[in-house]
Design a protein around this nucleic acid. Structure first.
Lengths: 68, 68
DNA sequence: GAAAAATACGGATTATAATCCGTGGTTATA
DNA sequence: TATAACCACGGATTATAATCCGTATTTTTC
């Protein structure tokens, strides 16, 4: 369950694929652990607002646009 | 410093005052600790997306609208 | 200007976000 | 078909979000 994290993760994944970069690549750019980025996209974790901003920044999009 | 948490907290405070409820009251409704709600508004802490949603829900607004 | 309500702030503890490293499986690419 | 790039998933540890008190201070209200 955890619909919030699940859809947030899906949104991040979609944006990332749009940019044509790998999970590891994005993780590296954002300065987050590669395995953690996987968990984020799978919706297994509940990230902080700070992390949301880091990721959105590297994805070149508005943080709000990633939220369900 | 920590501009992100500071402005997020200020936004939450503004919305709360708009509704005319107390910090403790909002904390109680959201199911978060009263002292923690104070720290949030003062921008001393980095909250999770889940908390952001809980708070926005009780403030009757969109989570994205609370973000800087 | 005193009493009450609301907020600031702190220390100590608990829950959990985030890291680090490893391995196995799946999907491109040569 | 093998080699590499990409992803899923895990256990163990560290950093920090969130809780649970308590008290002092500010702001409202009478």
């Amino acid at each position: 369950m955890k619909i919030l994290a699940k859809t947030l993760g899906a949104n991040i994944r979609a944006k990332r694929k749009e940019m044509g970069i790998s999970q590891d690549g994005l993780a590296l750019e954002c300065g987050v652990d590669r395995s953690y980025m996987g968990r984020i996209e799978r919706g297994e974790v509940n990230i902080t607002v700070e992390k949301l901003y880091q990721i959105a920044s590297k994805l070149g999009c508005n943080p709000a646009s990633l939220l369900p």
